[in-house]
């Protein structure tokens, strides 16, 4: 009986999400089948689209992996978007200061700087929670706005283009500082490799190490964990820092592998999409990769909707949101 429920519930959520999305599509008067063909298979139709999907999936996976740590530790890190932005800004610092250093060294420094920036930004949430009693949800949301403002300030202020300040971003980085990219495909193979590596490391840390077991215990029952002698506040801070570091690396990838500059919208909502992935996967690392690929494919596939069917690409967001909502609803019935 229980076995059956385990299979039926995700199926039910899937069906409900597609019904809702279909209704939305029908209301615009387009053929749902044609739209679904684009949304689901569009990302796999040409090599360029496939690589676009991969370049979106890499930072998304990093954020989702980071969030699965905080979820396991019982925290809702809605500040992941801001941590990604700060990571991107911090990654820019060494690239702008010493552009003629060896690229490999600069990439390492950018990754380190991005990770530290994201981690410190996330730790601020922990500080606010611990010492000021601010819920991490509100602290994170508020700090997202702050981070976004900071990115805008950097783009229009200290790091503005040499010609004239522009909302479209800073000057492009020198070509040799871009992460090695297959131009024809816009694909930087290092990005997905880093993301999958992060997934493997985090999966190992959460399931095999004593630290991971303690984080799970704190997430399940902080009071009992404290009683058993676990430093709960410290573990919570560590999960936040780890998530912030991964989001920071995602931000760094956006800079050196995708946009090759700092732009105001550097995070592009990837952090928040990562939250949906983490919710849908229940922070189970085994589900992260497939869900990330599916969500990235929906987003990339839907980009063609305005051109071919004349409807907005936001329908991918409807599908993603509906999936998470119905998955949560069917689980809540258990």
């Amino acid at each position: 009986m229980k076995r059956v429920a385990v299979l039926i519930q995700p199926l039910l959520a899937l069906v409900a999400a597609f019904v809702l999305t279909t209704l939305a599509l029908l209301s615009t008067g387009v053929s749902p089948l044609e739209a679904y063909r684009l949304i689901i298979f569009g990302a796999f139709s040409t090599p360029v689209r496939l690589s676009d999907m991969i370049m979106l999936a890499a930072p998304l996976l990093l954020c989702a992996v980071g969030l699965s740590i905080t979820f396991t530790g019982g925290l809702y890190n809605l500040g992941v978007e801001g941590q990604m932005i700060i990571g991107a800004i911090a990654a820019m610092v060494p690239l702008r200061l010493w552009p003629d250093w060896p690229p490999l060294l600069l990439w390492l420094m950018a990754a380190l700087s991005g990770a530290v920036g994201g981690a410190l930004w996330a730790l601020l949430i922990g500080v606010l929670r611990r010492y000021a009693g601010v819920s991490e949800i509100f602290a994170g949301l508020g700090m997202n706005f702050l981070a976004g403002g900071l990115a805008l300030y950097m783009v229009l202020g200290p790091w503005r283009r040499q010609t004239s300040a522009s909302l479209s971003g800073t000057d492009l980085l020198p070509r040799e500082l871009w992460l090695p990219t297959i131009d024809r495909l816009r694909l930087a193979p290092a990005a997905p490799v880093i993301a999958v590596l992060a997934l493997a490391i985090v999966w190992w840390a959460l399931t095999q190490t004593r630290w991971g077991l303690e984080v799970r215990a704190v997430g399940l029952n902080p009071a009992a964990s404290e009683r058993l002698g676990i430093a709960t506040a410290r573990r919570m801070a560590e999960t936040l820092a780890a998530c912030g570091a991964l989001a920071g690396i995602a931000g760094m990838l956006q800079v050196v592998a995708v946009h090759h500059a700092l732009i105001p919208n550097i995070s592009s909502g990837i952090g928040l999409l990562g939250l949906l992935v983490a919710l849908l996967s229940r922070a189970d690392p085994r589900w992260l990769l497939p869900i990330v690929v599916a969500f990235a494919a929906f987003t990339v596939g839907s980009i063609q909707l305005p051109l071919t069917l004349g409807i907005d690409s936001a329908i991918a967001g409807v599908l993603q949101g509906a999936l998470v909502l119905f998955a949560l609803a069917t689980r809540a019935r258990q």
């Binding site: 190490t209 004593r210 303690e214 215990a217 399940l220 029952n221 964990s225 009683r227």
Partner: peptide
């Protein structure tokens, strides 16, 4: 179950939580 033990974890995992050394469980 509220303050004493962690319901979702097993007795072995509780003993593992009391281990104070080693990286891996």
């Amino acid at each position: 179950l509220r303050d004493g033990l962690i319901g979702a974890l097993s007795l072995a995992e509780h003993f593992a939580l009391l281990q104070r050394t080693g990286v891996i469980v």
